[in-house]
């Protein structure tokens, strides 16, 4: 039995559940928070989604089939919770998901937990010039350090397509940021 299987059994046992879940929080809370924050932008939004994500993880543990690793499964739940949150907002505001994204990005620039210089603001804007899928793939690979295979599982897209999306996005961000650096710092 692998360590992960033992750990999952602990999460499911009455006796060890509480301690195991604390360990899970210690290991994953911050990672999942940043994963969510990049999808929903502001701290307040990310806090709501993070809480819902861990409650859902806890509730869904008995149904975890172990077809993927616990790590990938939790990222997928966090991703789905973020989407659910954005869709709820899009319904409430009666606007498209793209428009909700734009609105949240505007809110981010007003957020008290956004403290960026000009270059950082520019990077945020460049990231939002990417197509939705390209941006998600780029962020999951570059900032969350997920494997291509894991991103493919989370987004349910073929691994080959994920690689193409990532390299295209990375090239775009690199070119744009080089331009910014040249103009800003007159390199």
């Amino acid at each position: 039995m692998t360590n992960e299987t033992e750990f999952i059994n602990a999460l499911l046992s009455k006796k060890h559940r509480e301690r195991a879940f604390k360990q899970l929080l210690d290991r994953y809370q911050e990672r999942l928070y940043w994963h969510i924050r990049k999808l929903v932008h502001t701290h307040e939004n990310a806090n709501d989604v993070l809480q819902n994500t861990f409650v859902r993880i806890y509730r869904s543990l008995p149904n975890f089939k172990q077809n993927s690793s616990l790590h990938t499964w939790m990222y997928k739940i966090a991703y789905n919770e973020s989407l659910r949150f954005l869709e709820k907002h899009s319904k409430e505001l009666r606007v498209s998901l793209d428009e909700v994204n734009e609105k949240h990005l505007e809110n981010l620039f007003q957020d008290s937990y956004f403290n960026a210089n000009e270059v950082q603001v520019k990077l945020q804007k460049v990231l939002h010039e990417l197509a939705d899928k390209e941006r998600k793939v780029f962020q999951m690979k570059y900032y969350d350090d997920l494997k291509f295979r894991e991103i493919a599982e989370i987004l349910t897209i073929k691994e080959g397509t994920i690689k193409t999306l990532y390299y295209k996005a990375a090239k775009y961000v690199e070119d744009k940021m080089v331009q910014v650096m040249v103009t800003e710092h007159k390199i």
Binding site: W34, R37, K38, H43, Y113, F114, N115, A116, N117, Q120, V121, L123, Q124, Y143
Partner: peptide
């Protein structure tokens, strides 16, 4: 996340 994206 804070260094590159300014998120806190």
């Amino acid at each position: 996340h804070s260094k590159e994206l300014g998120l806190e």
